[in-house]
Design a protein around this nucleic acid. Structure first.
Length: 268
DNA sequence: ATGGTGGGCGTCCCA
């Protein structure tokens, strides 16, 4: 009895529905979490995705920007949407599902990118990002009794040295500044979250999930960053079987700049 | 050192 959960920043689910369908047919995860759907709830291609077996869908969309959704083969209950920073952005959704006799809450996040200048005095977007991360510190993996937790999403921060192509050259670049990386590690520490990707791949190995659209040849340059993450509560971490980063998806026709990341768990 | 690409929306925002 296995459980597979995928996270993917799709950068417009309507434009990229064909590759979402290809991915689901081919990889067939139990649950797909999407970020940057860039549509309102009623515009989400729910019928097409349900047709592939994902009949349980919860959406937190908005017009034009951001937006997150969970598409699941397993029934979803108790879905919640939290308005981080109280600005009305659709950047979080969570729901409960049951697997192997366990109750699990799944959180799906899209953390603000933060703009270009890493100084909150001149760049309010960076301030928003830091405030968002600060608010995430209150989210515990052990928040609900008898309930495990999984947290996925585009967190827009590459916390470790080998989560970026050049640690030294990235220290003043948003996504890898010390105030962000310290903040995200503190979210993990305070919430008792386990970084499942790094449980599977050692910290000393380069690991990326995003490659910029702006590179002439993204694969040759390979200047990636690990912006997408899968975390869990400590009780679920020992059940992790594998984590797969589908790098080839960056080379698909009309790709997202992020690739799907899938965690597989095995029941004891 | 700079500008590079991509999506949604609507004549510019965000990433």
């Amino acid at each position: 009895m296995t459980l597979s959960v995928t996270t993917w920043n799709i950068n417009s689910v309507r434009l990229r529905l064909p590759i979402v369908e290809d991915f689901l047919r081919r990889e067939n995860p139990d649950i797909l979490c999407l970020q940057e759907i860039k549509c309102q709830n009623e515009q989400f291609p729910a019928a097409e995705i349900a047709e592939l077996g994902y009949s349980n869908i919860v959406i937190h969309g908005q017009k034009g920007y951001h937006g997150v959704a969970i598409c699941s083969k397993l029934p979803l209950t108790e879905d919640h949407r939290q308005d981080y920073c109280g600005v009305g952005d659709s950047r979080h959704i969570s729901a409960i599902f049951e697997w192997a006799g366990r109750r699990i809450r799944l959180h799906n996040f899209y953390v603000p990118a933060g703009g270009d200048e890493p100084n909150r005095d001149v760049n309010p977007k960076f301030g928003h990002k830091l405030d968002f991360v600060e608010e995430m510190k209150a989210l515990s993996a052990e928040a609900e009794p008898n309930t495990g937790s999984i947290l996925v999403g585009d967190l827009n921060i590459a916390p470790l040295e080998h989560d970026v192509w050049s640690h030294k050259q990235m220290l003043k670049i948003i996504s890898h500044t010390p105030v962000e990386t310290d903040g995200l590690l503190e979210v993990m520490r305070q919430g008792k979250w386990v970084d499942l990707m790094r449980q599977h791949v050692p910290d000393t190995e380069k690991l990326y999930t995003w490659w910029s659209y702006r590179a002439k040849d993204w694969a040759a340059a390979d200047r990636g960053r690990r912006l997408d993450h899968i975390w869990s509560s400590a009780d679920l971490a020992p059940l992790l079987e594998s984590v797969a980063v589908l790098k080839e998806a960056r080379g698909w026709t009309q790709p997202s700049d992020h690739v799907p990341v899938t965690a597989r768990f095995k029941a004891p």
